[in-house]
Structure formats: C-alpha cells, structure tokens
C-alpha cells in the first residue's frame, strides 16, 4: 500500500492533527455529533447569541451526515457523508468556537480551506454510497438534539475504526 493508514481516537490532539497529511487513511474511533444544513443553522444561531452549545466542539468531531432510520433491533440505519460545501458558510463560526475535526464529502470553498488551516483543524473525507460498511463502524447512535428535524437532527454517535481520508 502506497498510502498511510493511521488509527486515531477522538478528541485528536494538536500533534495528531499536525501529523496528518493529505490522503492519509484514518480509522477513526470515539464520539462525534452529526449536523447537516438545518442543524448548522441552529448551532450557529446559539453561538451568535453568545450561548454555550450542549457539547464541547473542541473535544469531538462534526460529521455531515443524515442517517437513514434504524430498523427494529439495529444500532443505526445507513450511514454516510453529505456534501460538505453546503456547510461552508457556517464552518468559520464553528471553528471559532473550537471545532477541530469535520467529516464529509467533497471539496470545500477556498476560503473554508484557509479557515480550516488557520484553525489547525482537519477535514476528513468519508466515502459516499457505502452505508452498510460504515454502519458496521457505529457502536452507538442516539438522537441528541432536535428530533423534529428527522434525518437532519443532531445524532450522537460512537465510532470504531470508521474509515476516512484526509481531505485538508
């Protein structure tokens, strides 16, 4: 294999982030939160009025994901990334509030790339269309905020060796 595979657990230390390079493969474990467009709007609104988020952005990751519902007896349904660039307008606010790790799909706007680099944060690319593979890497999944948003709610997930690649 001509690429590096690194096992990491959230939260990532500044040194761990610094050691990652474009296209390294990461097997990620630990606890993160999902957020898509609607959840980003709400998270940023909370921060803009000067209130605290109900979780510490610096200690976790945000995964741009709207899972499909879990069938009876399953931990979760289908898991996979959505297009990250839709979250670009919100990303600087979350970086400013301490966010260090984002997981999604696709390129980011040049200004977002700069903001991610300036914050010493990292953007990981997850693969789209491999929901069954990724759902096997989910140890637990619960609705954490705004259940009325359905797939767009914030889910708290525990990951074990979740495959992704360094994008930025």
């Amino acid at each position: 294999m001509s690429f590096k595979t690194i096992k990491l657990s959230l939260p990532l230390s500044p040194e761990e982030i610094l050691d990652l390079h474009y296209k390294d493969k990461v097997l990620l474990s630990g606890t993160l939160y999902t957020a898509r467009d609607q959840a980003h709007k709400r998270l940023c609104k909370i921060l803009q009025v000067g209130e605290q988020l109900p979780f510490d952005l610096a200690q976790t990751a945000i995964f741009y994901c709207g899972p499909s519902p879990a069938a009876a007896g399953k931990i979760c349904g289908g898991i996979g990334p959505t297009t990250s660039s839709r979250m670009d307008p919100f990303t600087p606010t979350l970086l400013h509030a301490g966010l260090k790790v984002m997981i999604g799909k696709g390129d980011r706007a040049p200004a977002t790339v700069d903001a991610i680099r300036a914050a010493n944060a990292i953007y990981l690319i997850a693969i789209g269309g491999i929901s069954a593979v990724l759902s096997r890497c989910i140890v637990s999944c619960e609705t954490f905020l705004w259940p009325e948003l359905g797939a767009e709610a914030v889910y708290k997930m525990q990951l074990k060796d979740f495959p992704c690649y360094v994008g930025i």
Binding site: M1, F3, K25, C65, G66, P67, S68, A71, K74, G77, G78, I79, G80, T82, I127, G128, G129, I130, S131, A132, V133, S135, R136, P163
Partner: peptide, 24 residues
C-alpha cells in the same frame, strides 16, 4: 482501496439489511 470498499458494501448491504446509501 475505495473501490474495494464499495464492492464490499454491495455484499454487506443485503446481508445486514442496511441501504446501499443512506440517501435513499
């Protein structure tokens, strides 16, 4: 590596009854 994972997904999806992609 990614193509290999996509091909694996084709067998896991019917076995685990998890959609091929979460965006159905």
């Amino acid at each position: 590596d990614v193509l290999n994972t996509i091909l694996t997904n084709h067998s896991l999806s019917p076995a685990d009854k998890i959609p091929l992609c979460q965006d159905t």
